[in-house]
Every structure is written in C-alpha cells, then in structure tokens.
Simulated scan of single mutants.
Amino acid sequence: MTRKYQLIYDKLLDYYGPQNWWPADTPFEMMIGSILVQNTSWRNVEKALEEVRPFLSPKHIEKLTTEELAQLIRSSGFFNIKAKRIKAFLEWYKSYNYDIDVIKKLDKLQLRNELLSINGIGRETADVILLYAFDKPVFVVDAYARRIFYRLGFDMPKFYDTFRKQVEEVVPEDIGLYNEFHAVLVEHAKVYCKSVPICNGCPLFDVCDRRLDSND
C-alpha cells in the first residue's frame, strides 16, 4: 500500500478502532440490509429489519408474496421496488441452494458479474455483498469514499470501476483490510467529514488538503 493510503488507513483505524462490520447477525441479513439501505438511512433499515426479522431466512422470505414483503420493509422507503429486488436476489441465491460456502468458492469477477446481472443490484451493492458476505477483497466506492478522498487531495476517476481498480492496485488483497478500510471511511464521514465538515479535531487534519468545493 502506498504511503498516503497506508497513513490514512492507519490514522482512521487508530482513531475509531475496529468496526466489526457489516452490522448483521448473519450473512443473509447482511445481504438483505445491503438492498434495504439503497437511497435511505441505516436507521430506516434497522426498523425494516426488525419488522422482517421473524422471516429473515431465505426459505421464509421465499414463501412471502412480494406484496407481503413490501409491507414489512415499508420503513426503508421505495419498499415496493426493494421487495422486487430482494425477490430477484433470492431467485439468484436459490440457484446455489442458498449455500454460501459454495458461492464463496467462485471466482471474484464471475461472482461480481452474476450479482450485477440481478435486477436492482448495482456496483456498490454488489461490492458490499462481495466484501461482507462472500469474503472477497474489493474496495467499495460510495459517496463517503468519494467525499473523503477528494478533500484529502486525491483526484479520483468519476467512473465507479476505475476508482475501485485504482485503489485496489495499491491496497493488498487482504479481506480484513478492505473490510475495515470501508468501515472506518463510513464512520469518519459520519463523525467529521460530513457534508459540512468538522475539521477541528479531525484525525486526518494534518494530511488533508481541505478541498471543500464540490467534486461532482
């Protein structure tokens, strides 16, 4: 890992500590949560997960109609769309007999392409599933990563996969490292590097260019 990436990772991990992400009791809950969190806050996802928790297994959700599932996840917003996306994901998952160990043995690129072929699974959602459910080392490019890297002084590519590959070229293929890197970036964006940043006390202050104009 190049010196600046290593410095950012070390400072954030030292400040926030291990995050033990993704917040879920099972890989299946993690995957459902990754769909529910699209275009909403995690607080709303937690409410939806509590409602759906009695049915939170592939075979139970399989038995629910799309309409029944939609009502359970209402608090996540866009619930009708997300119910259809969960059902589409479940259909793919069932093709592997819901066997996560079999899926983990697949090649990362093949698995990523399969996830991207599912209705409603975009690059970011596919990558968090790869990282946190299937233990594949991949860098998740979300709005938080874009914001932080830009303010630090990086001129990262606009296109998702170009950004992702640029980071992956310099970060070792260590699943734990990718897991924590994404998690501490998210935490930092929530605590200090907000839309309107709190620079006082920021653990990255001494290595930040403080570019506060928009990078959109």
Rank of each mutant, 00 (worst) to 15 (best):
D174P: 05
G201A: 09
G17W: 07
G77I: 04
E173A: 11
D216C: 14
R85N: 10
P197L: 06
P197W: 05
D99R: 03
K63C: 12
V196L: 12
I148M: 08
P172Y: 02
F78R: 08
D10V: 10
L90Y: 00
R43N: 14
I73D: 02
D14F: 15
Y150D: 14
P137C: 04
I118C: 09
V138R: 00
P18S: 13
D14A: 13
F89Q: 02
M30S: 15
M30E: 07
C202M: 10
S195Q: 12
P23N: 08
D107R: 08
N97M: 11
K4I: 15
R211P: 14
K63P: 06
P203C: 14
L109G: 07
G176H: 05
D216L: 15
H182S: 07
R3T: 13
V207Q: 08
K190Y: 10
Q6P: 11
R146G: 13
N179S: 14
R151L: 10
W21D: 04
Y5M: 14
L185K: 03
K158E: 11
Y9A: 11
K194Q: 12
L106W: 03
M30G: 15
P157L: 12
F134A: 01
F28C: 07
L64H: 04
N113C: 10
Q71F: 09
K105W: 03
S75Q: 06
I32Y: 00
A24I: 00
L116V: 02
D213H: 13
M1Q: 08
N200M: 15
D127W: 01
Q71R: 13
A145F: 03
V186F: 06
A48D: 02
Y15T: 14
A83S: 15
D174F: 00
S75M: 11
E51Y: 09
L12Q: 05
R151V: 04
E68V: 04
V184W: 03
P18F: 11
Q110R: 12
E180Q: 14
Y192E: 07
K136Y: 01
G17K: 09
D135F: 02
P172V: 03
Y178C: 03
L130Q: 04
D10L: 11
R112C: 05
F159D: 12
K105A: 10
V191Q: 13
E124T: 06
L177C: 06
L115S: 03
C202R: 10
L116P: 03
V52C: 07
L12G: 14
G77C: 11
I32W: 00
P203D: 13
D25C: 09
L49A: 01
L204G: 12
N39L: 09
D101H: 06
Q71W: 06
K190F: 12
G201W: 10
P203S: 15
T40D: 05
Y96A: 09
S117E: 04
L49F: 00
C208D: 09
G77N: 05
L13V: 11
P172W: 00
R151K: 09
V184N: 03
D206M: 12
N119D: 10
F154N: 09
D25I: 03
K82I: 07
P157H: 09
I86G: 02
S95E: 04
K194V: 08
Q38P: 05
A133T: 00
D25W: 01
Y132A: 05
T125S: 04
G120N: 06
E114G: 07
